[in-house]
């Protein structure tokens, strides 16, 4: 078990959104305000960690052929729990995320990590994998939220900070490009972030090749 490698993988080299390109639907759909992104990120982090632990625990008794069905049942169970908890304690978040909370079930990140990591590794490693991948996902969501909210509404921390929870105004109201909070903005900002990531990941390699 290599914690440092897992940490760097989750955040950078194997980032679930920017490198593995999983879980795109929620990444683009709900990143319109800071509060949404934080809520979604933490929800996925919790579900991912719990389902990774459980799947890693039962991996030896589950027959290979029905493993996907088992994964989905485990994940759906945790999603239901988190869904009910959010509805009970954070009703505002439940309304703004809407159908995307139950849709965490089919978020490819969770099924992908179950298949690629926790089905093959021990409990402790799977636990940390869930946490680090979850943090990587949350960070991307927050980056998307901050960029889209800044460009689209000219505010920061919408739903959480500022007067009436509307966010702290940074840009005067005539400057923001409203388009960025619409679906178009989601596609463009995520495209730009992935391009930035590809640039950052390709750079050191090129330097090495040149030094050879």
């Amino acid at each position: 078990m290599n914690l440092k490698k897992q940490f760097m993988d989750g955040l950078l080299y194997q980032n679930p959104v920017l490198v593995q390109v999983l879980g795109m639907c929620s990444t683009m759909a709900i990143t319109t305000s800071f509060f949404n992104g934080l809520g979604m990120g933490v929800a996925v982090l919790i579900i991912l960690t719990l389902s990774n632990v459980i799947i890693s625990l039962i991996r030896k008794i589950v027959p290979d052929k029905i493993r996907i069905a088992m994964f989905i049942v485990v994940i759906a169970g945790f999603v239901t729990m988190v869904d009910l908890l959010i509805q009970a304690f954070l009703p505002a978040l439940a309304t703004s995320l809407g159908v995307f909370i139950p849709l965490i079930v089919v978020n490819c990140i969770i099924l992908g990590r179950a298949e690629a990591f926790s089905y093959k590794n021990g409990v402790a490693a799977s636990f940390f994998d869930g946490i680090f991948q979850g943090i990587g996902y949350t960070l991307v969501l927050l980056a998307m939220c901050i960029i889209r909210e800044f460009l689209g509404a000219g505010t920061f921390g919408g739903g959480l900070l500022g007067p009436g929870g509307k966010g702290i105004t940074i840009l005067p109201s005539q400057f923001p490009i409203g388009m960025m909070t619409l679906p178009v903005g989601g596609f463009l900002v995520l495209g730009a972030l992935i391009a930035l990531m590809q640039w950052a990941l390709n750079r050191p390699k090129k330097n090495k090749e040149e030094s050879k």
């Binding site: 463009l188 495209g191 391009a195």
Partner: peptide, 16 residues
């Protein structure tokens, strides 16, 4: 650097 997904996402954004 825009090869692959990024350029596809930008295309999809314009279609949106």
């Amino acid at each position: 650097n825009w090869e692959g997904f990024p350029i596809a996402l930008v295309t999809a954004g314009l279609m949106a």
